[in-house]
Write a protein that binds this DNA or RNA. Structure first.
Length: 203
DNA sequence: GTTCTAGAAC
DNA sequence: GTTCTAGAAC
């Protein structure tokens, strides 16, 4: 007998062949992604570079330390060299990927990431991707919620720790939809996406 | 983080 | 009537 009623809901975003994931375990998904050969781009003794599983632009990579660092707040002063290395690797990878396409890019961290395990985003600024769907997606990459890698490194160097709470991250996510290039405000995501492609120069 | 969908917004 | 968003996921 089937036990599922029609229309019954179940936790999503973690299925795909393996055993049923327990509630809340999706936040550890980067650990699996780091090991996934389909996502892995390169690794060295300190970091692993992967393609974001749901890229929010044409080129979107994550640089993760092999060392298990849960979040920005866990950073200690002696992690500065690691952050510099992550930045250098991320910059090389994203430049290489973009090639002659002429897209700009940014390197940075989300103030309050959903996924555990420190990860540096290296993302091209076209934001031309079917996985970019929600206001939270948009604002997490185009508002102060996205903290530049250099700013994180500076803060760690000067303060000995990293604290992004002064940016009011939760409020950033609720800001109106605004084009990151010309600052025009759009009323919904489809209109925003239609607008931003006009800023991508054709190659 | 994503998926799904009820009901708001148009 | 259709599009779009926001919140639950047992």
């Amino acid at each position: 007998m089937a036990t599922a009623k029609p229309g019954q809901k179940r936790p999503l975003g973690s299925s795909g062949g393996g055993p049923p994931a327990k509630k809340g375990f999706w936040s550890l998904g980067l650990l699996d992604s780091m090991k996934d050969p389909n996502l892995q781009v390169e690794k060295d003794d300190k970091v692993v570079v992967i393609k974001d599983k749901y890229p929010k632009a044409r080129y979107h990579y994550l640089v993760l330390p092999k060392e298990n660092i849960s979040k920005l707040k866990a950073l200690q002063p002696d992690h500065l060299e690691l952050l510099k290395h992550m930045h250098e690797v991320g910059e090389r990878i994203i430049k290489e990927a973009i090639g002659e396409e002429g897209l700009s890019y940014r390197l940075g961290y989300h103030a309050v990431p959903s996924m555990s395990h420190l990860h540096l985003h290296a993302i091209s600024q076209d934001f031309d991707s079917p996985s970019l769907k929600t206001k939270k997606h948009w604002n997490s990459f185009t508002s102060a919620y996205f903290v530049d890698s250099k700013e994180v490194m500076d803060q760690l160097e000067k303060e000995g720790k990293v604290d992004t709470s002064a940016k009011n991250p939760e409020a950033q996510l609720k800001l109106p939809l605004r084009c990151h290039v010309c600052k025009k405000e759009l009323t919904n995501m489809p209109k925003l996406k239609e607008h931003i492609v006009t800023h991508i120069k054709k190659s």
